[in-house]
Nucleic acid binder design. Structure first.
Lengths: 140, 140
DNA sequence: AGAAATTTGTCCGTATGTATC
DNA sequence: AGATACATACGGACAAATTTC
């Protein structure tokens, strides 16, 4: 893969993408951003580039980075929604595609996919866990 | 000492070595791999390199890693289910529980669980993949 | 019950070599 | 030549989960 950075540099494009996710709630304030390693996999960027992107967000106060913990999306006054779910039976998240999913979706392993997980209980005990995977691609 | 990565990078060579040990039984399925610190000493590699090697194994489902515990050798991927030439839309197979599934089911990570996978297609393309996990005992 | 040790997770800073624009 | 980016690798420090004492 060459290194085309037509227009703005890559780290700025990644920073913009992450900022959008924070603003539109995909990454909720107070929660951790994906780890550097996860962002490397998702954007297929080198560590240096990812760190540059996060540096931009930190500079703009969109995130606060804690050594050994991660980068936390900043709380926005108008978006403070504690929503303390103790343990939801369903949740959304992003993970990376394992080789099989990658093959099925026709993407490369390591690409980020959306995972929805539902926990089905029966008499209190967990009977089964359903995980639904979808490609992330659409219009980003 | 510079950083010569002529040919195969170190982390891949280490991953290959560890995979061999799992395959030939030197590290038996269900047991823990040596700790990162031990691997660092053995291969004289940095922690980052060791962790990259283990990430390769995890990606290929050769191990399941648990925070604070270690990486558990899994059943070999090619022994887990029947080999397929083509991809059916639904299939049963056995996999190993990742830490989250283990917690939900109240079993230990690395334990074998039943996985049923359904592939939902739409106009030929794979729209989503549904995976349903159940413990071994129940449901039979 | 609690403290310490172990182990993995994450971030920080740096370095070398390669490739592209 | 310089700026950008990638892949690899090192070492250090702090955080968090688990195990051991």
């Amino acid at each position: 893969m060459p290194t085309p950075h037509y227009g703005q540099p890559r780290y700025r494009a990644i920073a913009a993408e992450l900022r959008d996710r924070i603003e539109n709630g995909a990454i909720r304030p107070g929660t951790l951003l994906p780890a550097e390693s996860a962002l490397i996999a998702e954007f297929r960027a080198s560590r240096g580039t990812i760190r540059q992107a996060i540096a931009v967000l930190r500079e703009a106060r969109f995130v606060v980075t804690e050594h050994g913990r991660g980068s936390i999306a900043s709380l926005r006054p108008h978006e403070i929604g504690p929503e303390k779910d103790s343990e939801p039976d369903a949740k959304h998240r992003e993970t990376v595609a394992d080789p099989e999913l990658a093959t099925l979706f026709g993407i490369e392993a390591g690409t980020v996919v959306i995972e929805r997980q539902n926990v089905i209980r029966r008499n209190g005990a967990v009977e089964k866990v359903v995980r639904i995977y979808r490609p992330l691609q659409a219009g980003t």
